[in-house]
Each structure stands twice: as C-alpha cells, then as structure tokens.
Design a binder for these strands. Structure first.
Length: 750
RNA sequence: UGGGGUAUCGCCAAGUGGUAAGGCAACUGGUUUUGGUCCAGUCACUCGGGGGUUCGAAUCCCUCUACCCCAUCCA
C-alpha cells in the first residue's frame, strides 16, 4: 500500500501476510438508538476503508439487542449515512436480532458446560456482590444451581414466565477478577417488550458482551474494530469465543480512539438534549456535527472523507481542531464551487456618469480553477456594494473604496467615490460615484491602479435571498453543557441581494459568494419565492485577522506544568541488603543495583549467574535490561544462568560488541541455543581491524554526498547517521567504538 | 485505590536502536480583478519528568507524574 499506514492497517496487513486470514471482513455495528454523527463517519471510514484497501468486505450490522431504546427510524438514518459517504455494505443489512436463535443456542451450550448460570438476586444485591475495584466480589447463592435447574429456568425465562429483572443469565468466570467486566458478566436479561424487528417473539435479550462477539463470529468477521472504552470488554469477547471452542478463523477485537472535535459535542445524550430542548432546529440543524446536520449545512462527502483521512487513527484520546474540518470543506469547494456575487449588507451606490444598462459576461471560476463556465451580469447606474467595502476614515492598509481610493467592481468597471450621503443620524445611506468608461474588465486601458476588486449587484435585477449564517454552536472549546452554548450561533439575514443568474438558472447547489464564503441552497426551506442559503464556511480572511489582532496582541507565555516527583516506595530490609552489597561489594551503579534488588526474580537470576561468571557489572547490566525485558514480556526467564555468563564473557573479551550481544540474547531466548554456538553459526565475531572498516566508511561517504554536504554545512548530528550506515553495511559486526572514531576522523578531514 | 489504556510542536499525527515525516493553525515574502487559491520560505538541538544501559535512545530498562476507561439487567 502506497499511503501511510495507521496501526489498524498494519495489523490487517500482517494478518493477511501471515496467512491468518485469506480475506478480511470488517463491520460497522451501530446501535440504532440515535442519529449518526461525524464520529460514526470516522468509524465508517475506518471499517469500510479497511475492507476497500485490502479487497475485503464490510458488513453493516444494526446492533439491536436493547429494544427499549432502539427504533427503525434510526436504522434508516444509519443506512443513509453509509450510503451518502459512498460506501456499500456487503450483502443485506445485518441485524444482531437475526441471530437471536443462534445466540440462544450458544447460551444453552454454555449452561451445559457449567459456564453459565441463572442468577436471581436483585439488581441492588448484585451490585453489592460485585465488589469494588479494590475488593473482590462474591458469587451469589444461586451460582451453584445444577445444569438442569439452569436449563429449566433459562427455558422459562425465554417463555416469558417471569417478570423483568426476576432472573438473569450470567457467565461463570471469576468474581475476583481484577477486570471488573469479568466478574460473572450478564449474558441475558428478561425484557417483556416489543422489539422493532422480532416483535414479541422474545422475552429475553442478549447483552452486548455476549451478542457482539458471536455476531462477529457468525458473520465471519476477522477484525472487530471498536472504540477505546471497550478495551476492558475484550477479555469477555475472547472468553466467550474460547470457552465455546469456536473454530478459527475467529475475529479479534481492536480498539481506536473515538473522534472528538472542539467547540462541539458528540455524545448521544448531549445531542439528544439539544434537539429535545429545542436549542437547535432538529437532528439536521446545520450547527450539529450529525451527518444530517453536516449535509444540510452543505458539507460534501469528499470533505468528510478527507477529514477522516487527515485526522488519522490512533489510540490517544485527542480533540481535533474544528479548523481542520473547515480546511477540508474549503479545500474541496475551492475546486468545485462556482463563484457568484452576493451582497449581505447592501449600501447603495449611484454611478452618476453611467446611463442605460448592459450585460457583462463573467466567468464563474478564477483562472486557477480548472473549470469553465460563465454567466451574464446586468449592470446599470444603480448598484449595491457591501457596507464593509466602504470606509470614510479607513484604517491603515485598507484596500477597498474610500473617498480617495478607487476600487474595481469585480467583472465590471473601476469607480471613484464622489459624495457620501448620510441620514439624520449620520449613517451612510448612499455613495455617489463615477465610473471610468475605459476600465471595463478585460479591456482596461485606464491605467488606474486599484488595490482590490469588490462584489456588487445591480439594483433592479438583484434578487432578495435569505441567508443563514452559522457560527460555532458552543462558545467553549470543550463544552460541558447547555451553559456553554453560544447565544449567537445563528444569524438570519432576510434581505441579502444576489445576482439574478443564481436564482434564475440555478447553476449549482453550492456557491462561493465571492470574498465571503461558501454557501449551500437549503435543501428543505429553499423556494423560488424565498430562496434560502446556508453558509457552509467562511473564506479565510487575513484582513479581518490583522484588524482584530492589533489591540489584542499580547505575548502569550507558555506555562509549563510543574512536574511533581512522587515518592519512591522504600525497600524492604532484604532488598536494602542486596542493594548495599551490589553497590559496595560488586561496584554496580545505584540504578542498576536498585532495579535488580527490588525484583526478586531478577535478584535470584543475578545471584545464580554470578556464581558462574566473574564480571558482576556487565552481567548486572544485562540482567537489569535484557533479562528484565524478557521477564516483563514473557513473564518468565527461560535462559540458564550459565548461558548468560557465557554471553557476558564474550562481551568482556570483546569477541562481540554490545550491539551484537543484544541480538544474540534475543536469539538465545528464542532458540535456547548457547551464545557461542549462535556467534559461530552466524559469524558474528566483531570486526575491529581499521584496515577492514576504512574502505567501508569510504564507500558510505561516497554513496551519500547529500549528507556529506549537510554535515559540512554544520549538521554534525549526521555523524551518527554515517556510523549507522557503516554498521549496517557490516551486518552490525563492526566494532562501533572503532567505527565511531574512524568516522569522526574521516569527517573531520573532508 | 485494583485492573486496562495513553503521553512526540498551539491542534492532529508518523516514527519500533542510527538525519524528529506529513497535515491543520500561525508567521514571512511572491503571484492574483476574491485580503481567496496557488507558489517559496519560517515554525520540535528534542519526544510527560528524572535516572540507567549503549559508540549512539522518542525507541531498551528502572522510576515518578498527568490524563482517559472499568464497579448499567446500556452499547
């Protein structure tokens, strides 16, 4: 694959390469209990994207195990979202509820294995029995029911003989598990409710932890990708599949960090609160991060997809700057949207020396956009310009119309201000101007230099339009609740004026209103009598920024948080004794001594090896680093002390370098061979002869003229690069100390 | 507090013992009939802190710190 790989792509690629799977199957498994938002888009993009990238398949599965919160209207919204983003699920839409019968049979199997039981304690009691994060829980008195009794009870649960909450089916795992999720998790609960798909067929419904892994298995899913908060659930996922002894290929769960964006909220609860409290106009309110909202706002699928790609996939909880999303839509629309002129806050301009009217041909795209189209622009002596584009007392650097500064009317003529007309309150209500007949756009011979070209509309032909200008929904970067809502997130402009072609010819749905931003014809409220446009996003505006910055340019100082150094647990008496012996008798440095003394396994290994080796320091270094790693990763040390002692001897007599020693150590662990044998078999003996090394250095230098130049230019860090190259060329066998010295000399001499 | 995770620029994010990628944002300058776009350039001697191992550490070891998740009959 050409592009940059995230960790999920890396896992899939590895699994395919190793032959673990012939083909990958992923799935997007939403619960149909809310409207999809841009966080779902990320998940959709990951799951469908993975399938696309590796010629696999991706299912769309409604995870409908909780009939009390779910509804078919959400199912439709979810399907729409996937389709709109341009993805196709494999086969039909799947439903966990389709597997209820199979799931039930698996549960029976677990009961028969003695791995599941019907519990009948109250909810409250169950909570108490579960224990806390620091205390183990206790099994309820019902846990030792016989298989027959469990089977009977479960059957009756299914038959609807009990009220909700009377009994549950639980897995029999471990009430003392450190992972709370493993303390006999619930598998089934009784819910005498109507399910939106299975109707009244079932009175018991499976829990997520039981249904999800098995649904994945049933569908042949290979990579079950979910968000970080399910990390603890992975143990149950594996337990269910392992305990049932399901044949491979089986699915494995992998977790990534869900998407968060600043100045907005993504949780179902908070979104619901906004909609139900009428703080927004509905699920498709253009200020919402819902797919429906984004669509109504005018975001394109390409922009959303690019956004998902650009934020990447990782495991760190992070909050993406909304500016990144805005960049994506601007970037997309810049290439696509026709440019038209709209005046939001009109100021009348009368061109005194212009008589009659004409139609100007105006291109819809600037020269740098590879599209071509044009429209007719009526022109006469009465026009409107943006109020902002005239200043009687302009600030420094103002490029637009002023009493002394002419300006070009985009696609038309240059005008000069002649007179300012104000009302009784001193508000400017009209500009009287003159145009320069020889300055017509495209055939300008006037020689007048203007600093900018502004948008305008001709008075008699302009159409009135409604504009909905959106700002961020929240005023806080990381909003908590309703109190953080931005009271000015919506501005409705009833009387904006737009050039007639936009309304009469409807050349597109999305436009760039020149110099202002991208707008979208509202798909619902737009009518010919009352055209409505939603602002998708503003154009970048470096002038506004410059203006605003002047007063508020305070140098922000970076406050580094104080790093508290916690207390180190004191050593036990025995540890202290060992530590003292290591440092005073054996000459170990305190850090290495500390590492070994505090770890009983390392200490015993060390003392064992010490008996057969007589190089306490080198040995200690290996124990405190390599052996410690092995112990950490494997949970046990499989090497004999003698083998390690042998390795130490080879380091001490310079047979091998410490770099090679690490490599040998890893092989010793893997193959259980003696280090001597490994070194012999692979010819790993260190090369220390300068006569052998020098030509290799010369070769490396000759091969890297660019880096030599950089080195000469002062990048002295590059010496490490050359050492590395030489070492690589010798398969790591060159004596690094000597290489280092020789490289330094060579580099100095050139 | 037990367990599970995560920390690399203002915001995302590569990097798996050998030159700290890239994008967004920001800032210069150039082009421009959009203060847009585009182009050129600047922006981490350092990777949460402190030690250790190594010729060489963001990467290996020890240790400390901060943040997130888990004690729903939700998913």
């Amino acid at each position: 694959m050409e592009y940059k790989k995230d960790f999920l792509h890396a896992i899939v690629e590895e699994d395919l390469k190793s032959g673990k799977y012939q083909e990958i199957i992923t799935r997007f498994p939403p619960e149909p209990n809310g409207f999809p938002h841009i966080g779902h888009a990320k998940s959709i993009y990951i799951n469908f994207g993975l399938a696309r990238d590796y010629n696999g398949r991706c299912n769309l599965r409604m995870d409908d195990t909780n009939p009390t919160t779910e509804d078919t209207k959400y199912v439709e919204a979810l399907k729409d979202a996937v389709k709109w983003l341009g993805f196709e699920w494999d086969g039909d839409v799947r439903y966990t509820s389709n597997y209820f019968q199979k799931l039930y049979e698996y549960a029976l199997q677990l009961i028969k294995m003695g791995k599941a039981y019907v519990d009948s304690v109250s909810e409250e009691e169950m909570r108490e029995l579960r224990g806390t994060v620091t205390e183990a829980g206790k099994r309820s008195q019902y846990a030792n029911r016989s298989v027959e009794e469990n089977l009977d009870l479960f059957e009756r649960m299914k038959n609807g003989e009990f009220q909700d909450g009377k009994h549950v089916l639980r897995a029999k795992i471990d009430m003392a598990a450190a992972n709370m999720k493993m303390r006999d998790p619930l598998l089934y609960r009784i819910k005498n409710v109507h399910h939106h798909r299975t109707g009244d067929t079932w009175c018991i419904y499976p829990m997520y932890d039981f249904a999800h892994c098995l649904s994945d298995y049933i569908e042949g899913v290979t990579h079950s990708i979910c968000t970080l908060e399910f990390e603890n659930n992975r143990d149950i996922y594996d337990w269910v599949i392992d305990t049932l002894g399901l044949e491979p290929p089986r699915p494995y769960q992998h977790e990534f960090a869900r998407l968060a964006i600043n100045y907005t909220v993504m949780s179902k609860r908070k979104l619901l609160e906004l909609v139900e409290g009428n703080h927004v106009s509905g699920w498709d309110d253009p200020r919402l991060p819902t797919i429906a909202g984004l669509r109504r706002r005018g975001y394109t699928r390409e922009s959303i997809l690019n956004f998902c790609e650009s934020v990447g996939v990782a495991k760190a909880n992070s909050v993406v700057d909304v500016a990144q999303l805005e960049f994506c839509i601007r970037d997309d629309l810049n290439k696509k949207a026709p440019r038209v002129m709209c005046v939001i806050d009109p100021l009348k301009v009368t061109i005194e020396n212009y008589e009659g009217s004409e139609e100007l041909e105006a291109s819809c795209y600037p020269a740098d956009v590879a599209k071509e189209d044009s429209r007719k622009l009526p022109f006469s002596k009465e026009i409107y310009i943006e109020r902002d584009d005239f200043e009687e007392n302009p600030p420094k650097g103002y490029f637009r119309l002023t009493p002394d500064q002419p300006v070009r009317l985009k696609h038309a003529y240059i005008i000069t201000c002649k007179e300012i007309i104000k009302d009784a309150n001193g508000k400017i209500i009209e500009i009287r101007a003159e145009y320069h007949p020889d300055s017509k756009s495209g055939q300008d011979t006037s020689g007048i230099k203007v600093k900018s070209a502004i948008q305008w509309v001709e008075a008699s032909s302009a159409k009135r339009v409604e504009l909905r200008l959106y700002e961020r929904l929240y005023k806080n970067e990381q909003p908590q609740g309703l109190e953080d809502l931005n009271p000015d997130s919506l501005h409705v402009i009833k009387n904006a004026l737009i050039e007639p072609a936009v309304i009469e010819q409807k050349p597109d749905e999305r436009f760039q209103f020149e110099r202002q931003g991208y707008f979208y014809a509202d798909p619902i409220d737009y009518t010919d009598a009352n055209p409505v446009f939603n602002k998708i996003v503003s154009l970048k505006d470096s002038w506004k920024k410059k203006e605003q910055k002047q007063p508020a340019s305070k140098p922000k100082q970076k406050v580094k948080p104080v790093q508290v150094d916690g207390e180190v647990a004191p050593m036990s008496q025995e540890e202290q004794a060992l530590f003292d012996r290591y440092t005073s008798k054996l000459g170990l440095n305190s850090e290495v001594a500390n590492t070994i003394a505090r770890d009983a396994d390392l200490a015993s290994f060390y003392s064992e090896a010490l008996a057969v080796a007589n190089s306490p320091i080198t040995l200690a270094n290996i124990v405190a680093n390599e052996v410690a790693r092995e112990l950490k990763e494997q949970g046990a040390i499989k090497l004999s002390a003698k083998q390690v002692a042998q390795l130490v001897a080879m380091i001490d007599d310079a047979t091998i370098s410490s770099k090679i020693a690490k490599e040998v150590f890893e092989q010793m662990v893997k193959t259980a061979k003696d280090p001597k044998q490994i070194v012999e078999e692979q010819g790993l003996v260190q090369i220390s002869d300068p006569a052998v090394i020098e030509p290799i250095i010369d070769e490396v230098i000759a091969k890297n003229p660019d880096n030599i130049a950089k080195y000469k230019a002062g990048n002295t860090k590059l010496s490490g690069f050359f050492v590395g190259q030489v070492l690589k060329a010798t398969g790591g066998k060159a004596n690094p100390k000597i290489v280092n010295k020789l490289v330094a000399e060579k580099l100095k001499s050139i």
